[in-house]
């Protein structure tokens, strides 16, 4: 593909009044090529989550431009952003964010339903099967463990084959075994289906699974590592925080 999956150009995000407020992002430029996995790291308050929200069109940038899957969404109206959430982007979060009143398979089929597309039961079961939950299709979220809930959330993000998946601490609430399973699933999405992932994490071991790690400090990009190892990531992070 010729264009990056996500591109931020000189993005600034202010909170509060222009002259007294805080810049959560301060002139950030970043391009994540299609079919890659980028991890975003940094100390608390460095602007990681704001970057993710701005890149996904959940928050408006104060200045600069955001291009998502080849489309400039900087000032896109709500209808366009809604349409993109249905077809182009997906989300996976630390707290799973499943709809409590729907079963696992209904949760997975939900985004397609909102888009007016009829998802066949076979497709839905297939996706659930690929995350290892074929036998949990009719369970409600509260009947599933944390790891299982997160896998349902990933299945939901997979079904519409989004170009970009945004993940915020996807393994933050999971035990180490479940975390490993979830990371494997994310890796398959990038390698197998050519989708892109932008992921915020605190965990150097998780970040090391990505193709590149971007370090943020005080709203600016402080460093970048390609093909990182856990040690390298931990090292850089320690240096940033000291």
């Amino acid at each position: 593909m010729s264009f990056p999956a996500v591109e931020l150009r000189q993005v600034t995000r202010f909170y509060g009044a222009r002259n007294t407020g805080v810049a959560a992002l301060d002139g950030v430029s970043l391009a994540c090529p299609a079919g890659t996995w980028t991890a975003v790291m940094g100390p608390s308050g460095s602007g990681k989550s704001t970057l993710l929200h701005c890149a996904a069109g959940l928050e408006q940038v104060t200045t600069g431009r955001v291009v998502l899957a080849g489309r400039d969404i900087t000032a896109a109206p709500d209808g366009v952003l809604t349409e993109m959430r249905r077809r182009t982007i997906g989300f996976v979060f630390q707290n799973f964010n499943l709809i409590g009143s729907l079963t696992a398979e209904q949760n997975v089929a939900f985004p397609l339903k909102l888009a007016g597309i009829r998802a066949s039961r076979k497709d839905v079961r297939g996706v659930l099967g690929s995350v290892g939950l074929a036998d949990r299709a009719t369970h409600r979220p509260r009947e599933l463990s944390g790891g299982q809930q997160q896998r349902v959330a990933i299945a939901r993000a997979m079904i519409s084959r989004p170009a970009v998946l945004f993940a915020d601490e996807p393994t933050g609430a999971l035990d180490s075994h479940s975390a490993k399973v979830v990371l494997e699933l994310l890796r398959d999405m990038v390698r197998g289906a050519g989708q892109s992932i932008v992921m915020v994490t605190h965990d150097p071991a998780v970040a090391a699974g990505a193709d590149a790690v971007v370090f943020l400090a005080d709203g600016r990009i402080a460093d970048r590592l390609d093909a990182p190892t856990t040690h390298q990531v931990a090292d850089r992070l320690a240096r940033l925080e000291s």
Binding site: L58, T82, R85, N97, I99
Partner: peptide
């Protein structure tokens, strides 16, 4: 939060 989640998974304002 539930309603915001509906919007996050692609629900429009009309929906």
């Amino acid at each position: 939060r539930d309603l915001a989640l509906l919007r996050l998974t692609g629900g429009s304002r009309g929906q």
